[in-house]
């Protein structure tokens, strides 16, 4: 199956990657070439095959309900979480005004 320029533009928008017309010119044929290649997977009869869910068979471990048990996954470190923010004011992250 091949995708159109409009479809590629729509995917770019869904992925929040701004694309100029020139970018699309380059990407559309590349994209179709890769898709055509991965579509050989359709040849394989996978009926009755379970999709992989865990690479190595393991059970999901659960954590105890304890606040700040490990400093690396704890709250209470506002300065750290804001330290790299392009805009941080009054303890908040700042973003362009959102209209809901």
């Amino acid at each position: 199956m091949s995708v159109t320029r409009e479809e590629v533009a729509k995917i770019a928008s869904l992925a929040r990657i701004r694309m100029a017309e020139g970018d699309l010119d380059k990407l559309v044929p590349e994209f179709n070439k890769i898709l055509e290649w991965v579509e050989q997977l359709g040849e394989v009869d996978t009926s009755g095959v379970e999709p992989m869910t865990a690479v190595i068979p393991q059970k999901l471990r659960l954590r105890d309900d304890v606040v700040d048990a490990d400093p690396l996954t704890a709250g209470g470190r506002r300065d750290d979480v804001l330290a790299n923010a392009p805009v941080a004011e009054h303890g908040f992250y700042g973003v362009p005004k959102v209209i809901e």
Binding site: D70, T73, A74, G75, G76, R77, R78, D80, H90
Partner: peptide, 17 residues
Amino acid sequence: SGASTAFGAEPNSQVSL
């Protein structure tokens, strides 16, 4: 994560990495 769920804290004070 291990951050607290308590209501009404200072902004971004209950945020883990």
